[in-house]
Design a protein around this nucleic acid. Structure first.
Lengths: 359, 359
DNA sequence: ACAGAAATGAGGTGCGTACCTCAAAAACGC
DNA sequence: GCGTTTTTGAGGTACGCACCTCATTTCTGT
């Protein structure tokens, strides 16, 4: 049998109450006694039973996840992944609530955030562009004791507790190497597309991309970034025009997500497989484009991991516990047609199917 | 407050005992009553509290992980990852025990396996080559009610319950595309190395690799596989000789893991960065070789995920619960110098730092 | 309608921990 | 050595569920 608190008490020659005081860092215990208890813990190899601890604590964690109301497949997939993870976490005393805010309206976002503390939340995960209003709102949240976690795009100048997402500069560098190596030594031009060239993640990706191309692939010429503002219409026009007028273009780097229009143009112009096309985020239609040859490689992050990590981090922060940095790191994944992960329909889970293995 | 079993009983108009019978699939309840209870569960949105359930059940899971006693960094890293995951899972009522067997001795392995049921285990994860003796041993284990999970290398002709690892054929294909695209259209030769050409994973990787090269990169000539038997000595000799005699060799595909000798030869011959070198498994020295340029790309699997997945699967099988296929899928990861994940020292966790978030 | 079988109810115990109260003992300052 | 403060002990309750027993009710078939 595993040792319990009672065994510790006996071994240390103290009462259960004292063991409890030590275990839960309550005041009023002499250092000497604390040491005796810790020695007993070490000697017996005691490990707190979390099932019992959580049960006794009776605490519930209500967490808010705040996403822009963008209709992109990426945000939608992210929302789905979070909902999935949340439904599983429900059996571990967590309630995850999704909130959306108007994508371009920083004030609406701030207004939303300020209502959260009063609504009983104990943590917030947030995907949003950094603005002064947002910085203030985050400061207020943290002053209220709510941990704030940045999602996908970092908010480094706020005092957020943690960032969950990939290193976008490294992601850009990765795109750069792939582009360079796939195109080979012959001179060529590369088109770069981005939704908004002001967003932090776009800027970082572009910087990483350029860094590598300049250093390692001098025969490539990277054309100035084209801004699409998320509009498929604009994207189609711009890309069609450039491809028609610049015969030297052999590669396209799409820095953002949501490339339906892009792959359509490529296919319509009969260029599938003839260009090196690299983009981000493995959404359903990017997946399809990868299979069809319109897209060559995708730089992506595993949204399932990201969602689960979000929950773990929020919870750890709420409990003021340290994190396992290795597990919470979101990797930059490279997906080609050949290593496309099989698609599993994420069947809704029933209560009976849930497990709470800590792993 | 979340609904509890008592709420279900009240809502369904039955007693607690009946709710319990339904929830735990005990016999002696009419279909009509079962339906009434399930309706109440659905209506109230009841979710079983696993902390409480596990506590009440008081069940412990003792799992065996059986690995070859190979001294390769890969197996060592795998063992470490499993130990880590196991120490966390300890607070969720799981004991993970590692066992090693002499790598080439199928009978010793079988002998080890047969002792497990008597030793109170409720599941086995196993990394081993498939042999007739092993097939029998696995059959016996399963007849004893122990779920058996194949690790890293599949055992498809045994009746194992599950396989945890990557699709090696797809991994080989991935290596193939990278090799082909990185080398470009000019004619070239590719050297292929493998520890043992009989191991299933090696065969599958080779098949996938050839498949892609033949189909998509006709200008490449893949030389016959060279067997190294895991000996650094042999590897050095063979590679040095081939590279000296075959000036057309511009790529090397190392199908196995443990490439210290390989990277040394490459460096010694002044070929760092001049060859396209692709290998498997991101072990510490492969990492180093990637940074140094001796290795171009690594096809790998995330051992942390693999270890955690192993625990979840073993536990689910022991409880006869279904799996979340999406979460348990081990992805084929491509690692270049540019997306090399940062190294986090996996600090040993103390009891206080553990959480049991289901996610 | 009746015996026998099947289904259900009532109630209790225990899992390991958190958290509380009140009393008793020990350490402390002067 | 006194009073005061600090530390410790003893004991209880609660968390939500699993699992058990025994009595009682409700269905079967005939």
């Amino acid at each position: 049998m595993r040792p319990t608190v009672n065994d510790i008490a006996r071994e240390a020659g103290v009462s259960l109450a004292t063991v409890d005081r030590v275990l839960n860092a309550r005041p009023g215990v002499r250092d000497k006694t604390i040491r005796a208890v810790n020695d007993a813990i070490a000697k017996l190899g005691y490990v707190r039973d979390l099932s019992a601890a959580n049960l006794a604590r009776g605490r519930r964690y209500r967490m808010a996840v705040v996403l822009p109301d963008t209709e992109s497949q990426f945000v939608q997939s992210l929302a789905d992944a979070l909902t999935d993870a949340g439904s599983i976490a429900a059996s571990a005393r967590m309630d995850l609530r999704l909130h959306r805010f108007p994508a371009e309206d920083a004030h609406a976002l701030a207004a939303l955030l300020t209502t959260l503390p009063a609504r009983g939340y104990s943590g917030v995960a947030l995907m949003a562009p950094e603005t002064p209003v947002l910085r203030d709102a985050i400061r207020t949240l943290r002053a209220n004791g709510l941990p704030v976690v940045a999602l996908v795009s970092d908010l480094p100048n706020t005092r957020r507790d943690h960032f969950i997402g990939t290193d976008n500069r490294a992601a850009g560098r990765t795109a750069g190497v792939l582009m360079g190596r796939f195109l080979g030594p012959a001179p060529a031009q590369v088109l770069v597309l981005g939704q908004s060239l002001l967003a932090r993640d776009m800027i970082e990706r572009r910087r990483g991309f350029d860094e590598v191309i300049l250093r390692d692939f001098p025969t490539l010429e990277v054309l100035p970034s084209l801004e699409t503002h998320g509009s498929g219409q604009t994207l189609r026009q711009v890309v069609a025009e450039r491809l028609a007028n610049a015969p030297g273009v052999r590669g396209i780097y799409a820095m953002g997500d949501g490339h339906l229009a892009l792959t359509q143009v490529i296919e319509e112009m009969g260029l599938s497989g003839k260009l090196v096309v690299i983009c981000h985020e493995l959404t359903p239609h990017v997946r399809h484009a990868l299979e069809g040859g319109e897209v060559t490689a995708v730089i992506t992050q595993n949204l399932g991991h990201l969602a689960r990590s979000t929950l773990r981090v929020l919870r750890a922060k709420a409990d003021n516990l340290p994190l396992d940095a290795g597990q919470e790191q979101i990797r930059i994944e490279i997906v080609l047609r050949e290593n496309l992960p099989a698609l599993h329909d994420s069947a809704p889970l029933t209560a009976a199917e849930l497990t709470d293995t800590a792993a």
